[in-house]
């Protein structure tokens, strides 16, 4: 071309641009750079054929290798499940009452149960299993329906006061608002308080004894120690599910309380139910 400008100093063609007399050399790209670019282009073509790449109307092209991150995760999970198959079979077959706490199976079940608990149970019972008002603390030694491993498995499987499960644990306390007079309620409340506290009105409590024996002792026992067959709480211990103040106890007597729990046997696999039961049993209160 006739209008090619050559730099006198270097003999290299210039771009023709000039700023204050400074001209820009038009050096060719370095060979190694150019070849790297070509190699990247080739790689890119190969990659877009092998892997998902081109966006189409209903999703990207699948690629010859049919790789997907979702499939990768699925195969990872399948691999882990396959790896744990033996332990799961052992867990399903094991007699949980005699399972040694130091055994590998117990450790596996505890770890698995911990994961189940955090996903399914912690919403009500708390991440640390300490419970909340109305939701039992699973760390202490007070159990409404029994704290040995078989009872825990049963509770987890069938839930509490759960209409969808025929075998669900069930009991119902009457609401005494319509049955007792106000002074009767005050007397019963004072008697219940007196079972576990030293600060109470002795005369008022005395007035509540007969009412308690006639109405409450059937479930809660003559000494107020509760009855696990009926899920009736021990009223003589230091633990209150809904709180131990007079107002709270009075509210319970008037209105009754019904804690409910899902029947996890309907949603979780048998091994998960067993695992989470082992986990709960090993939290400190297990019997």
């Amino acid at each position: 071309m006739s209008d090619r400008k050559i730099d006198k100093e270097t003999g290299v063609e210039t771009t023709g641009h000039s700023w204050d007399g400074i001209e820009e050399l038009n050096n060719p790209l370095p060979r190694w750079w150019l070849w790297t670019l070509y190699a990247c282009v080739v790689w890119g073509i190969g990659y877009s054929i092998a892997y998902p790449a081109w966006p189409m109307i209903s999703g990207a092209t699948k690629g010859l290798l049919e790789y997907s991150t979702r499939g990768q995760v699925a195969s990872d999970i399948a691999a882990h499940n396959a790896q744990n198959e033996g332990l799961v079979a052992e867990l399903l077959a094991a007699d949980l009452t005699t399972l040694a706490p130091t055994s590998d199976l117990h450790r596996y079940a505890n770890a698995r149960g911990s994961a189940v608990f955090k996903a399914q149970c912690s919403q009500c019972h708390g991440a640390g299993a300490a419970g909340a008002v109305g939701y039992p603390n699973l760390l202490d030694n007070d159990w409404l329906w029994g704290g040995d491993i078989e009872n825990i498995v049963y509770t987890v499987n069938h839930g509490i006061r759960n209409d969808t499960d025929f075998d669900s644990r069930y009991s119902e306390m009457p609401a005494y608002d319509d049955i007792f007079e106000n002074d009767e309620i005050a007397a019963v409340v004072e008697y219940v308080i007196s079972l576990s506290s030293t600060e109470f009105d002795a005369d008022l409590a005395e007035a509540g004894v007969d009412l308690f024996m006639d109405n409450c002792a059937a479930c809660h026992g003559d000494e107020g120690l509760g009855n696990r067959d009926l899920g009736a709480p021990n009223l003589a211990d230091a633990i209150w599910l809904y709180g131990g103040s007079r107002q709270t106890v009075e509210y319970t007597v008037r209105n009754a309380r019904y804690g409910v729990m899902p029947a996890w046997g309907q949603r979780l696999s048998d091994e998960d139910v067993r695992a989470v039961s082992i986990y709960v049993h090993a939290l400190g209160g297990g019997e």
Partner: peptide
């Protein structure tokens, strides 16, 4: 020390830490 909860009240009023 397990700090969730900070302590556990037992049925006899004893206090347990984990």
């Amino acid at each position: 020390p397990v700090r969730n909860p900070t302590y556990v009240l037992q049925s006899d009023g004893a206090v347990r830490n984990i």
